[in-house]
Design a binder for these strands. Structure first.
Length: 901
RNA sequence: GGGCGGUUAGCUCAGUUGGUUAGAGCGCUGCGUUGACAUCGCAGAGGUCGUAGGUUCGAGUCCUAUACCGCCCACCA
């Protein structure tokens, strides 16, 4: 029993790192058909995933753990199917996040970004990246990620920077990139423009301020106007009313005076105005409101920007210049009150736009920025999903995707940051020319002047991430990798970045490579805490995956994430669940330990052809069924359900039943023991394979022991295709069509289980000397052959003394003073120890009979209803069979009741 | 304003071509430990599947309406 030197409890802490290094060292993370290796076969199609690149600033959170677990499962599954599998890892420079992080670090040294200057700041950010950037990838390795680390990329490395440059220039040359003043979202804290997607709206209490716009030539007459942002009055260039609003019709065309500043502005009429809202008159600030901007365009209004980059009032604000926007709001309102211009203020719920990163209130502002004209790209991206070139899982997200792309606005791609891909545009100070170039120019292509300077801005981080599936494979170079591995297969990520990232990859992929970047988008849900709340540092409910792995093991965490989630649905994670799955890992370990022990004890050869027992056939049939189910569920992306079924099979069927029976069969010795050991090893082997994509470490470790045990022992189990080097590259169990014999074996065994459970139940209920073997009598009727054949198993699992076990077809006389029951037509009698409580025994049987009787009535009703005619014959037969069984049971119960009297 | 998801056992959730007694884990109750595992075993209690209609021989599953919770998009000052 040498193998039982294995520890009684699975100790993941000594296993995980060793196994991971072994996999990596032996090169299993690399695709088996690599274009860089001799013997490469371009016709063997690969399976490819590009990792969603985590931020270099990142620390592992459960969102990362989720996608790593899911993608690793997908990769391992395909790898085991013999498909060359490539998982390209990497990380994202994450412009804003990283810049903020480094600024925070510098602040600790009392330094400011502006004081250091751009060049020095970028240098320090690279230092920071080199120092801490590896942390996230180390943590991803801990999760067991089988990425090809030799192909690891960073969005700001040379190759990817080249891709970004190429993409920008191509779009510019196609006139799909332009620069100009447009309404953008300005983040005053970050001092940069951000895209629409980076703004989040939150409902917050505020006020609606009502005030007077007095006529320029008649101070007694005014138009009442309401606003939520009084400071924007400083930028007003018109007051608008609805054309059909008779209250104000006579004032259209007149001039009114901007409060405090006393600028005269026109009263205009525009359909946009809602007569019913507020006062029905709308102040127009074209520079600081998107709708006002549109109205301003229609009416040729002046655009007055009143804000500085940090959202203080600028020189256009007259006496308020230099004041912060919110200080100005208070001050101007107080001043207006004094001037008698205020009507009232009313509590009002605002929908405040805030920066997704910094959290501060974002200001709509006219600013000169770079944009991608996105409609032409969006159309192709829409078509690719519509015509099925790309499938989104779960399917409902296609609608969301369509909706967004159909209403898409031009994408603001410039950011006023220092960390990122600098916009490849130069301006000539001498001739004013704009130069856009793949190579950094040293002089003006137009006039030859050396006095050129590069645009200060960098690109939105998502611009480079949008290229990720092909830039990581070498694009725009025509590399062997790009040729072979592109388009990739699945894009697996959270639904929260469907627009940010997925849609942009599709647009860019089609635009730059003429192909879809992947054919399937699999979206997982978000991880919430045990109560369904979003995890956040401020709430203090963040669960740290590293802590969970330390405490409960990587396999437990992975299994929890994979099995607890369904596509596109959020999941709540609690440590309790992970603990339960730690127990499962331990169960696998111990079942494995037992099997290894029996293999050692088994004979080295058999004398004859196998005579399979019912249990052998049953477990084999169930395993085949499991393999078919796993295959069906995997191809339908139902990984969670597949995991659950494997779990159930392993624990409730293999461990709870077959292992117990195997102990008996081993005790028989000889051929029985030999073939039992074969079955044990075979089923364990298959289970480890099926489980490996979910729980790679414990299965690999155990499989290693299984392999060496079998290899050392003559006559031991061998997989059909021989032993693979390690489980990670072992063959995935291919499902076989169901054999005709399977159903009968499964039915017979189920019946046996039912009888055993019933006996155990009765023993418990009657409190019959626990742990002691008892006598039993079975009147089996037509089940006689089955029970006789299975008498040993029956006795052992139902704790019956084999010497006192009686199995007959029918009893002439019902035994007296016995507890009895009927199950599936088999009558069971157990001697009652102690006092026979006739009354309670009678009551119990009567209750049984009543229940059976009501089932009979239910089924008779059902069968005489139209169901009997219209339902398929197979379904009806099943019910008829049930009815017959119940009737048989009822008859037996009645006899037993008679016997008691 | 538009769209989506959820509502199933005390708690957290499965349940994908509609098949007739609805499942798991945790928790709970009772019993059990010299041989794979107490991170365990055996047995048990616990649900009119949000509500109201409809389709069907048959609905947790399909349709319609509705309530509550959550999310996304749009951004009426």
């Amino acid at each position: 029993m040498s193998e039982n030197l294995l520890p009684k409890t699975y100790d993941f802490s000594t296993v995980e790192e060793r196994i991971y290094q072994e996999w990596e060292k032996r090169g299993f993370f690399k695709p088996t058909n690599d274009p860089h290796q001799p013997g490469f076969d371009p016709d063997r199609r690969p399976f490819v995933i590009s990792i969603p690149p985590p931020n270099v600033t990142g620390e592992l959170h459960l969102g990362h753990a989720m996608f790593v677990a899911m993608e690793d499962l997908m990769i391992r599954y395909h790898r085991m199917k013999g498909i060359p599998a490539l998982w390209v890892p990497g990380s994202d420079h994450a412009g804003i996040a990283t810049q903020l992080q480094v600024e925070k670090m510098l602040a600790g040294e009392g330094l400011k970004r502006e004081e250091l200057g751009r060049e020095e700041f970028v240098r320090r950010t690279w230092d920071w990246k080199h120092k801490y950037g590896g942390m996230i990838t180390r943590q991803i390795r801990r999760l067991g990620a089988s990425c090809d680390w030799d192909r690891e990329r960073f969005t700001l490395d040379d190759g990817l920077s080249k891709s970004v440059r190429e993409a920008f220039v191509r779009l510019y040359e196609k006139e799909l990139i332009y620069r100009g003043p447009r309404m953008i979202n300005w983040s005053p804290g970050l001092k940069t423009a951000v895209s629409d997607l980076e703004v989040e709206y939150s409902e917050e209490p505020g006020f609606l301020y009502y005030f007077k716009y007095v006529l320029a030539d008649d101070p007694e007459t005014f138009i009442p106007v309401a606003t939520t942002r009084p400071e924007t009055i400083l930028g007003d260039t018109a007051v608008a009313v609805h054309p059909e609003d008779e209250r104000y019709a006579h004032l259209v065309g007149r001039k009114v005076l901007v409060p405090i500043l006393n600028r005269a502005i026109p009263v205009i009429a525009d359909d946009y105005v809602d007569k019913a809202f507020g006062t029905g008159a709308l102040k127009i600030t074209p520079a600081h409101d998107p709708n006002d901007y549109a109205i301003g365009q229609r009416h040729g209004l002046e655009v007055i920007n009143i804000l500085t980059p940090d959202a203080a009032i600028n020189e256009h604000g007259g006496p308020y210049a230099g004041l912060d926007r919110f200080a100005c709001r208070k001050k101007i309102w107080a001043d207006m009150q004094e001037a008698g211009l205020v009507i009232k203020e009313q509590p009002y719920t605002l929908n405040v736009p805030r920066s997704q990163r910094g959290g501060e209130i974002v200001e709509p502002m006219i600013s000169t920025q770079w944009f991608v004209e996105i409609k032409p790209l969006a159309e192709k991206a829409l078509a690719a999903v519509r015509d099925g070139q790309i499938r989104i899982v779960p399917e409902r997200f296609t609608k969301v995707y369509y909706n967004w792309l159909e209403n898409i606005q031009d994408w603001c791609i410039s950011r006023q940051l220092w960390w990122g891909h600098r916009i490849p545009v130069w301006y000539c100070d001498d001739c004013g020319a704009t130069l856009v170039a793949r190579q950094d120019p040293t002089s003006c292509a137009n006039c030859g002047s050396a006095k050129i300077r590069q645009d200060e801005d960098v690109l939105d981080t998502w611009f480079s991430s949008g290229l990720w599936p092909f830039s990581t494979l070498g694009w725009p170079e025509k590399t062997a990798d790009l040729d072979y591995f592109y388009p990739t297969s699945y894009m697996e990520t959270g639904y929260d970045i469907l627009f940010f990232w997925v849609a942009r990859m599709i647009m860019f992929g089609l635009e730059f490579t003429g192909q879809v970047p992947f054919h399937t988008v699999y979206l997982h849900g978000l991880i919430r805490d045990g109560n369904g709340h979003k995890m956040s540092k401020s709430k203090g409910n963040v669960i740290d995956p590293l802590g969970l792995m330390d405490e409960l093991g990587t396999d437990a965490l992975r299994f929890t994430l994979l099995v607890g989630s369904t596509p596109g649905n959020d999941m709540n994670l609690s440590p309790k669940k992970v603990e339960a799955n730690r127990n499962f890992a331990n169960k696998i370990w111990n079942a494995g330990r037992f099997v290894l022990g029996t293999l050692d004890a088994a004979p080295e050869q058999a004398a004859a052809e196998p005579q399979w027992t019912l249990a052998d056939s049953w477990i084999w049939a169930r395993l085949q069924n499991l393999e078919r189910e796993a295959d069906r569920l995997f191809s339908g992306f139902q990984y969670g359900e597949a995991g659950r079924q494997i779990y159930d099979f392993f624990w409730s069927e293999f461990a709870d039943w077959y292992l117990e029976i195997a102990k008996l069969q081993m005790a028989d010795g000889g051929d029985r023991a030999y073939y039992t050991a074969q079955t044990l090893a075979r089923v364990l082997d298959s289970c480890l394979r099926l489980l490996h994509p979910f729980t790679p470490f414990v299965t690999e470790e155990l499989w290693g022991h299984l392999k060496s045990t079998c290899q050392q022992k003559p006559g031991a189990y061998q997989p059909k295709e021989g032993w693979a080097e390690m489980l990670i590259v072992a063959k995935w169990p291919e499902p076989q069509a169901a054999g005709a014999w399977e159903e009968e074996k499964v039915n017979d065994f189920s019946l046996l289980q039912e009888i055993i459970r019933a006996v155990r139940n009765l023993r418990t209920e009657k409190k019959m000397t626990p742990g002691k073997r008892i006598a039993a009598t079975f009147a089996a009727g037509e089940r006689l052959p089955l029970l006789q054949a299975q008498s040993k198993t029956l006795a052992a699992l139902a704790y019956i003394d084999p010497q006192q076990l009686t199995i007959v077809e029918n009893l002439a006389e019902k035994p007296q003073d016995q507890a009895s029951l009927v199950v599936a037509g088999v009558e069971v009698y157990l001697p009652l120890t102690g006092m026979v409580d006739m009354a309670s025994e009678q009551a119990r049987l009567q209750k049984e009979l009543d229940e059976t009787q009501s089932q009979i009535e239910r089924l008779e009703g059902l069968l005489s209803s139209p169901f009997g005619q219209k339902a398929p014959a197979a379904v009806v037969d099943k019910e008829r069979q049930k009815l017959a069984n119940f009737k048989e049971t009822a008859a037996s119960l009645r006899e037993q009741l008679q016997g008691l009297k």
